[in-house]
């Protein structure tokens, strides 16, 4: 029998397309609300953060519960995070700023919340580019892992971008920040444990 979970990745791809289909249907039906551009920006931004957090949850799930299947969909989720971030930026660039590059440059350099959001997108680019098996082989697993820890940096930048964009309704960005912090704590705990185990093993071989 082939891969017992061959349905999993296609299912994640199909499910991940749902937000884009929904936004497309709402755009065509004119039900994006009074400020459709703002609605598109808000929803694509939110979905980016969800994809990013989901992709960063894969390894902690494996550490905590021993599940292997999340690792199989980690790359797909990460790529969806990148594509929705790109869509978010393109809506801003084309629909909001109407390609007025001067205004965009001013925003990126002068408005902290745009700067942070743009930085998050820039950080995601090398991760998307090196998401193939070939890139993994070319970089070597060690360097590849180091590079892909940038996903946490993108996550933090995304939460900060969300947090400083809202006025006083900070609950939602704080929730995403807390989840991200929890996932990072699991990784950190795991790394510390590994270190201790290695040191103990070394001591044993020495004595």
């Amino acid at each position: 029998m082939a891969n017992p979970r061959s349905w999993l990745e296609p299912a994640v791809v199909a499910g991940s397309l749902a937000p884009f289909v929904l936004l497309g249907v709402r755009a065509l039906g004119g039900t994006l609300g009074a400020d459709p551009v703002a609605e598109l920006l808000n929803q694509l931004g939110l979905v980016t953060l969800v994809f990013l957090v989901a992709s960063l949850a894969c390894t902690p799930l494996k550490i905590l519960l021993g599940w292997k299947w999340p690792i199989a969909v980690r790359r797909t989720l990460g790529l969806f995070a990148f594509f929705s971030a790109l869509a978010h930026f393109l809506v801003y660039l084309v629909l909001d700023r109407e390609l007025a590059l001067g205004a965009v440059v001013a925003d990126v350099t002068e408005r902290p919340f745009v700067t942070v959001g743009f930085a998050a997108l820039v950080v995601l680019v090398p991760l998307a580019v090196t998401s193939t098996k070939r890139a993994l082989q070319r970089l070597g697993p060690r360097r590849w892992r180091w590079l892909h820890r940038l996903a946490y940096v993108a996550g933090v930048l995304g939460v900060v971008h969300f947090f400083i964009r809202v006025k006083k309704d900070t609950t939602e960005p704080l929730v995403y920040g807390a989840v991200l912090g929890l996932l990072f704590a699991v990784r950190l705990g795991d790394a510390v444990q590994k270190q201790l185990r290695q040191r103990a093993a070394r001591r044993r071989t020495l004595s």
């Binding site: 349905w7 296609p10 299912a11 791809v13 199909a14 499910g15 397309l17 749902a18 937000p19 979905v47």
Partner: peptide, 27 residues
Amino acid sequence: QAGLFVGASAVWGGSLVALMNRGAADP
């Protein structure tokens, strides 16, 4: 497998849409 595919994509897609709609679905 088809059943698992449909189920899993519905759960994941549904969760994403639920997060998007949190109090702000169609006008």
